[in-house]
Amino acid sequence: MADKNTQTNAAYEKVMAARDAKKLTAIDYIANMFGDSFIELHGDRRYSDDKAIIAGLGMLYDTPVTVIGIEKGRNTKERMERNFGQAHPEGYRKALRLMKQAEKFRRPVLCLVDTSGAYPGIGAEERGQGQAIAENLMEMMTLKTPILTILIGEGGSGGALALAVADEVWMLENSVYSVISPEGCASILWKDSAKAPQAAEALRMTAQDLFGLGVVERIIRQPKAEDKAMFESLKLLVSRTFEKNLKLSDEELTENRYARFRRIGNAQGGSLD
């Protein structure tokens, strides 16, 4: 065991790595996994097309897949355009529309999550950010087609969970997933955002922590852009998981998904099993 200081730094270094502007974004994953087969589908058919979420159809070997990714952007111009990967309600509604479409054709859904959180703004509140997230949570729980979520960077609270009610949730080795940012946590609890590293440790937000808590099923090695072999093995892993879950009946599939979340904090006093 490292001493307390090193531990603290390790957790916060993971946070920094998850936020690294140079790391791959959802677009890179889509390009590497689906190549030319990807067709982007836009809009929530209600209000607009939220560019913080990129979604569409692609072929995973011989299987058509619905893919929904939160996109942070790869340079300043893209980041502005993508609102830094902070979705509005219409983004979550676009995601839900395409998930329902996937359900109709029993097409598996792959969600790629990378966001500091749902956008906290006037328009987002006026158009029901809370309601949009809540509806996704409800509908995803009983969606009658396989869902797999991979956290490829930051998983920021409700805005991440709205795409992570899945049969399995995987995390990249340098990704984080938390109910609140360590800076936010430190400034609320200790009135000092400089204590973010301590908060990062206390929140237990790294992939390794969450695997230990039984909240995620798998930790994935961090791929690099030119790492074809790594993406090939990721494709294979995703494909096998979908294959396995496509064999289940609707009842088995949704029962398993409910049980996955049901067991978290169900013991007396709320401990984990």
Partner: peptide, 26 residues
């Protein structure tokens, strides 16, 4: 809002309760 002292376990309650609401609704 969330109980941040319970970290990710607090966040997971949103999914868990929503699932139970959906089953009741269905």
């Amino acid at each position: 809002g969330a109980r941040m002292q319970e970290g990710i376990l607090s966040l997971m309650q949103m999914a868990k309760t929503s699932g139970a609401v959906k089953r009741h609704s269905d």
